[in-house]
Design a protein around this nucleic acid. Sequence first.
DNA 1: TCTATTATTTGAACCGGTTCAATGCAAGCC
DNA 2: GGCTTGCATTGAACCGGTTCAAATAATAGA
Lengths: 355, 355
Amino acid sequence: MNRITGKAARLVDVAERAGVSKATASNVFNRPGLVRDEVRARVLAAAAEIGYAGPDPRGRMLSAGKVNAVGVATAEPLAYFFEDPYARAMMVGISEVCDANGIGISLVSAASEDELAWGIRSALVDGLLLFCLEDADRLIAEARERRLPFVALDLGDTDETVPAVGIDDTAGARLAAEHLTRLGHRRFAVLAMEFGEENSGLVDMARVQAADYASSRDRVTGYFQALAAAGIDTGKVPIYETPAPEAVDAALAALFAAADPPTAILAQSDRIAMRALEWLKRRGIAVPREVSVVGFDGVPEGAAAEPPLTTVRQPIREIGRRAVEILIERGGRIRRERLEVDLLLRASTAPPPAG
Amino acid sequence: MNRITGKAARLVDVAERAGVSKATASNVFNRPGLVRDEVRARVLAAAAEIGYAGPDPRGRMLSAGKVNAVGVATAEPLAYFFEDPYARAMMVGISEVCDANGIGISLVSAASEDELAWGIRSALVDGLLLFCLEDADRLIAEARERRLPFVALDLGDTDETVPAVGIDDTAGARLAAEHLTRLGHRRFAVLAMEFGEENSGLVDMARVQAADYASSRDRVTGYFQALAAAGIDTGKVPIYETPAPEAVDAALAALFAAADPPTAILAQSDRIAMRALEWLKRRGIAVPREVSVVGFDGVPEGAAAEPPLTTVRQPIREIGRRAVEILIERGGRIRRERLEVDLLLRASTAPPPAG
DNA sequence: TCTATTATTTGAACCGGTTCAATGCAAGCC
DNA sequence: GGCTTGCATTGAACCGGTTCAAATAATAGA
């Protein structure tokens, strides 16, 4: 704050007061070696006198063209980044790479469509990481519109023209199902994530094939590849779409009301699996003695479930890391990457009950 | 990207191509109502032709003077924001207010001193929230240097000239100690956080009074106010400084090797309390039958401790909320606020053993 | 048709710096 | 003394917009 004018002091004010040019004043702060000692001291003194805080990053940024920050955008509220375990693990990976490269992180979010658009359009960042969950398409469209390099984090996005880092859903699902067939299971059920528009309950393969969400589809594909390889008739494996926790309960109620309930449940997410675990416990159905359950994702809470959940673990941190790396290295030139997953053996699976 | 020049299209390029002035082109994007339909269409068409992505936020920001984002700065690595439960709760509070006001969050961090300084100096934000843990002074000094409004989140900062939101440590500590005196305890020990420079083990009141960290000191003060009120000779209550987990173990070893071990332990943080709980369990000392333990902070993990930890709960989210509100409302004009804490009764406290 | 209004446009200043080619100057060398 | 070098300094362009007062054009009213 300049004591005389009451306005914030600028570089030109300092230069004027020190009797040097703007260029020299700028050099004092950015390339002090170029400036003679005596002049440098004079400029610094002038700066101190009028209370100049050093070059304003806004000005610097404008001419540098770089902001030195990546934006992370999502359609969820901001708090999501700090609450959701999946998001958090991803952010940790992102943080690590940003830290290592001295890059800042800007969180961009908004519940409403307009706000999100505005948020992405006005974010001061060099690139965007898109946290694609519900509204992947909108997010991607906005990011394209902004004409900034971006990388989508994950997931069921099917469009090959989008730079993205995710996992090989099919392979992961195969892992889960193979584990169960090896244990000897023959009667399966799939509790799936959403395939598309509002819907829940038993679905047929037509809906699966036509899924908006490629992850959900690919995981079914993976499951069925492994089941078929074990000689199981996948046509008879029921698939329930369970977008909400209640849908999980309903699906299980239907499954276990039938004559031949499954001995193995393939849950497409840990959330679904854990909800299933709760339901089975309430109903007194022993896991894994009577029924085995395999989740997907590998969220930390799975370890504390009762019993601890066997699941397919996504390398979530690694996804975050790679996404930033791609953003940095390749400036968003299209590049897709699928990371490998592994099976996390815990205690929710066992051979089927005898007989 | 302009197809001809290969450079990104600018507003002036659009204006030129559409045959209008820069001002009109700007209006098309910001105040479309001011522009005649026909002209607006022409400008939009020109923009589309040369691939103009809309006004660059950098330019807007420079003239607007506002960035519409707050920075959150800490001396920890970035991942800290997503891993530490205390930080996360704070960030959730911050997020809520930012969301409600359409403000973005920029994470500023750096382990090294230089990087932190650079980070704070070059952050594109309208104000700073300082996550004061280890290096509160440095953080505050840098923020002052930057001459941007800021609010410290915290904690033991003692300087009245710093705008800050924290809790009433003395009152909180009083709450904890009163709870124990009411239960009938007479023999106490304090496991304290750091008071200052590297040190650990038994300390005297002189060190407490001279503490660099006001929280640690104030909590002792609060404890002793309540103990004195119950007629206990505070001069005989041992205070152990336990900056590291091992120091907690050492302190307990000393306490329980003595003739008259305490029946109540006042831990200045939940981390310390939980470490104490572990030690007591290992040593086969029953909590709360033989010894009661009260923590401080109210971190979520306390609920899962064995036994669940009775503690003084800080309104962490609320602290975050208030800090942003103060930043927004008062633009950082100095203002300190102490929020109230409450006692969270769980299962780690009980009356002292009969004998 | 002419003037008063109102609706559009625009020139120019401003936001706060960085950077590069060119200039000025002094020391070094023959 | 004259010329070459090299360092220090600077003028001017540039980064990409916003905004306001003034100028111009269009419309309405008399």
